[in-house]
Structure formats: structure tokens, C-alpha cells
Design a protein around this nucleic acid. Sequence first.
RNA 1: GGCUGCGUAGCUCAACUGGAUAGAGCACUUGACUACGAAUCAAGAGGUUUCAGGUUCGAAUCCUGACGCGGUCACCA
Length: 615
Amino acid sequence: MTALQDLIESGVRKGLQQCYGVDAAGQEITLQSTRKEFAGEYTVVTFPLTRLARKKPEEIGQDLGIFLKDELEEVKEFNVIKGFLNLVIEDAYWARFLLQEAGESDFGRSPARDERVVVEFASPNTNKPLHLGHIRNILLGWATSQLLDAAGFDVKTVQIVNDRGIAICKSMLSWQRFGEGATPKSAGVKPDHFVGEHYVMFETRFQEEYRQWQQSEDAQQVLQAKNKKDLPEKEFWKGYKNTYFNNFSDLGAAAKEMLLKWEQGDPETVALWNKMNGWVYEGFDETYERLGVRFDKLYYESQTYLLGKDMVESGLEKGVFYRKEDGSVFVDLTDAKLDEKAILRADGTSLYITQDLGTARLRYDDFGATRMVYTVADEQNYHFQVLFEILKRLGEPYADGLFHLSYGMVDLPTGRMKSREGTVVDADDLMDEVIQEAYQSSLERESTSDLSEEERREIIRKIGMAALKFQIIKVGPQKRMVFDPKESVDLQGQTGPYVQNAFVRTRAVWRKAGSPDLAAASEYTTLEPTERELISQLYAYPTLLRDAAENYDPSLVAMYCYELAKNLHKFWHDVSILNAGSEAATAFRLRLCQSVGNVLESGMGILGIEMPERM
RNA sequence: GGCUGCGUAGCUCAACUGGAUAGAGCACUUGACUACGAAUCAAGAGGUUUCAGGUUCGAAUCCUGACGCGGUCACCA
């Protein structure tokens, strides 16, 4: 709620008292911003007031309009259309706001509030390079962390790396058997891709082995005995793959043995594991840097997968959990419309959820955070409901600050990405492509031809990355989205470069202006419609940020930046700045450009998008 | 099947959480560079908000049902 909205709302209450003698204390005042096609910046909806005032909506609008214009010096004029009272704010109010508050360097950001929040995102497996799905996760998580930072929280970014398990063992085994001592360097391949290639290699070799085995007598016996539904042979084998892996395959046995050795701490295996994970991290770091994200702390599952057992104990003591006869531990969440859930296996070993209980506590111990955000795709909605419910019942001090930043998966036009069908869009490739596209597009322009090759490359990088990031982040998190890698990304219209272009214009006019005298700005008294629009939009920035942070929704910031850029472009088209006709107008409009530019840079910065000075 | 999310222009997405004639971009048609940057602006066309009921001054939004598409229902992660 802004100061203006506060003023209007209490004005309306007072007006209802004065005009009709009714006490509107319990009445909600519906206040919204005025639609473009009508004059005004704020609109009071009078329909809900009819019961209270016992008048027609139009009459209430008239009465309140007259009252507010008289009562509030900020209200310049009003008009009534049906049940809508549109209020026009005084030019002087907007002008003062622009020249004073909007110019502050941290405009829009909330003061620090001494509360710490941990934001988790990325959290990949270490057997394959990052892909399009990770990109959405990373951009969303990062933007949300920046948004919370802008809202005044002390934010720590973390991820938990899944560095153990059968998957990485497959890559290790493949390298050991078929790698011939090659390294990423000797092969000239980005290290995480190198490891990913071995993961694929394992699958290929395994499939070969599986096909050959299918011809054997053993296999034919299995087919006879197990194919009860009389499936076609091909279909049967498809479904039998895991059983084969576990019971017959040499490669499968070797991979499982490797996992066992790793768990036993076999030095040779651990060394290999370290080497290959090291390659992966080297590659990941490069990708994170290109994406412009950083982590304050990395957790590794190899170090946390045994955590949580002490919490199981205390849960048992508190009566939150119960032990079954076979020794397994369960929690009964049926009264919270969830199920009974296993917390500990009968043999005493941990589960995924056990580990998550432990790492939640670990993060609390590490950071003292009272809030934790988990950026994880919506396929795990149920898991997080369960996790949060348990933490609540255990009485953990941060239990009320837990939030699952759930987001929809990224689909291709052909449907879901499937690694088996080779449709996975690689993160590094994708970034290369959009930057290449930005490069092509820049060839058609002369605007940066006087710059050095290096400077131009840097600008093109910013443009390409802006296009990619904006396209993904402008979609609301919970929404499943379709991404077409063939069309890659647009550079025109509702895009990152469109917003960058607006910013560049605000800078260009300042470069051209030299060092103007801005004192005259305060003498500018009558605003153009396009100026009112821009200023009232700037005015809404702080509440927009708070609102977006409260909802953990960076897409609201993206849409806001787009709208602001759009109005800047219109302003640019409608009025002249340097040839405005008066010193006052020129100075005022320069200040306006400056503030709009700053807000665009601030908002896009929250989204992890950099602004070029020229483009 | 149980639970859960979604269904808006040809396509990708909005709609201030129940408010005005459902808005943007892409693609398509047309106009604007001798003007501070045309990655821009302006205009046109494009809709029974999946369908059927209900709630009320007022519904894309809330309720019920149907249809369609996901996700999830392990002592996996």
C-alpha cells in the first residue's frame, strides 16, 4: 500500500461518514489503478458501497469525488463511469515525487530487516551437464533470492549437489573401461560434458549387451517363463530392462559393485569419484558463471545423506513418529490429509526424506535462517508437503518460514524433454545459440560499429542472455511452459532486449545532453499524459517489489519492467527531450529518463539481467 | 482409480487475487526514419476464457459436475 493509496482509502472512509453518516470501518475499500482508456491514476470501485450508503453506484461516485477533491490536495479532478470513481492526481504531487523520492539510489528496495533466509536452487546430479530445465530452476531461484534481498532479507543462496549414487558410478565405470585414459583436456571437451558423454556411453554399451543377451538361451527361458501377458517380444524386453540390469548384466553388476565399494570407502573408487565429480564441478562452475549466479554454500549429498537420524530419535521421543515391529520408523500424517510415510528403513538406514530433515536443521545451524526456500519442480509437491508438515510437528524454529518454490516443467513443442530420445536441450548449447542469434541481429545495425571488437562481444552477450532469461522468467513460476529451441528466442517485442533498448535510450539522451543544468526541472508544472503514466508507474515500483517478494514471483518484476519500458518508448516517441522548447521541460524529462533507467536497471538486475550502455 | 495442478487469440503468455469493452508479444496486413537510437512507434484483423449448471450488483477468477492434458501415489532420489 502506497502513501497515496492510504490517503485515498481513509479519504473514502471519511467521505462516507460525511456524506451519508455511515461508519465504514469494517468495509473494504476496493482501490485499483485506472484503466488506460480513462483519465486518472486511481479508481475507487463504488459497487460494494451501495449497501452501506443506500445509493446508486454513480451517485456515490459523484459524492465521493466531490468530497475527495475538496478534502485531498493531491486529488486534482475526478470522473465517474458507472460504479467507478477515477481520480486524477495533482501534477505537482507527481513532480515532487519524481524529483525527490524516485531519485534515491536504493529506490524501491526495502530497508534491511535483520531476518535471514536460505534460498536453494539448481541442485543437479553430477552425471550429466545442465539442461534447459536446470536453467529455469536456476533463473527462478536466483531471481527470487535477489527479490528477497531487495525486500530487505539477508539472503544466502545454497544448493545440494547429488554427487553420489548409481548414476555417477555408471559414468565412472564407463570411463574406467572405455575411456582409454582420456581427460576433458585431452579430448578438448567441456569437463561436465565429458562426464556426461561417459554416462551416455555406459547406456549405449549396456543396451548392446542387453540386446546380445536377448539372443541367449537364458533369455529365451526368461521370456517363456515371465511373459505372462504375451506381449510382443520387444515390448517385454523394454519392461524387463531394470530386472536385467540388476540380475544378469555384467555392466550392471560392475556398476553396483562400484557403488558398494564407494560406500565402503574404497580408496581407488573414491579417488576416481573425486576426479570425475571434480570435472563436473569445473564445468558447472563455468555454466553458473555464464548464467551470472553465485552460491554462498554448497551441500553435497555424499556428506549429508546420513543426516537426520538424530531428528528421528527426537521425533520418536516427542511421539511424532512411531516404530513398527520390524524396526522401521513411520509418521502418520493422515489427519493432515497426507499419508503414512516411512522415515527410516527397517535396517536403520536413511531415506530421502530423512536426509531432508537433517539438511533443514543443518542449514538452520549454519545460517540461523528463519525462512528457507526450496526451488524444486512441481513433481515434488507432495514430498515438500510431507517434509514441511513433519518439520512443523517436530517444532523446528524455522518451520513456519518454509516455502517450496514450485515451478512447472519446461516442455518442448514436441512435449517433454526425454534423454532417451535425445531431445534434452543442453544449457551451454542454448546460451551459445541465443548469443549467436544476437550476433546475427547486431550485424544488421550500425549503432555500435565504433566500438572495439571486445566491447561489441560483451554487448552481444548481454543481449543474448537477456533474451533467454527474460523469456523464461516472464512466465509465472507455477505455470508449465513451452520453449521452442528452434525459434530460440525473440529479440523484439515483449523481450529482454526490448527492455534493454529502453534503458539504452535513457542513457543515450544523457550522453547527448552533456552536463545540463537540472535546477529548472522544478519549474515544470504541467505534465503530459505519457509523463504522468511513467511517473505513476515509477511510484508503484516499491510496492511491486514487495508484492513480488511476498509471492515469491519474479515474473511480476519482469512484466513490470516490460510495461515500464513500453511506456518509455511511447514517451520517447511522443515528446521531445533535448528540443523540448523550455529548459524546465528538458531538465524534467532528463530526470524522468534517469529515474526510469535506474528502475529498469534495478528491476532487471533482480532478474539477473544486465543492461548494456549501448546496443 | 485416490489426491493434486492446469485448460484464455493460430502460437507463447498477462489479467493488480471477485470489477469497466478479457490484455500484450510473435506471426499476418498497413503506415511512420532529413527528428534525442526504428532491437522503436502507430493502426488493422484475430475470443462463446474447454463445456454445462450454480453463487451475486458483477465470474477467466469462487462452488458443483463433465471432458481434455500433466504430476504424484516406494522401507527410490
